[in-house]
Amino acid sequence: MNIKQWSVLSLFIFCCAMSLQAQDIAKGKKIYATRCLVCHQADGGGVPNMNAPLDGASNVVGNNIARLVRIIKKGYNEKIALDGFYYSNAMTANPDLSDADIANVLSYVRTSWSNSASKITVAQVQAAKSKK
């Protein structure tokens, strides 16, 4: 292959990768709309004192992926502290979400609103699950 062919091919691969990523975010947004939005709200702002915000939340954009995966899968029923405030509502468990679903919805919330953290891959979700 010459340089021109190489660049066409790499552009093609790049575009494929982009569209794949875009689709992941779109899927994540759809899951968010049906499962998460009612409590965490369309702007990811949550509800003061009740439902934790996701936009700008240190936990959400942080590196503890195992915790994020566990919260989505298992939910919780306790008062939690986050960035200086407390949130009292129970988080619903989502045991039926696949690893890909979790990767997609996490990628969506970590890159939406003011968040610009890394996207999450299926492999990261699987690794997080094995950590416990």
Partner: peptide
């Protein structure tokens, strides 16, 4: 109000 955090006073 579309999202509760947008309300200045409650």
């Amino acid at each position: 109000v579309t999202n509760p955090r947008k309300a200045k006073a409650r």
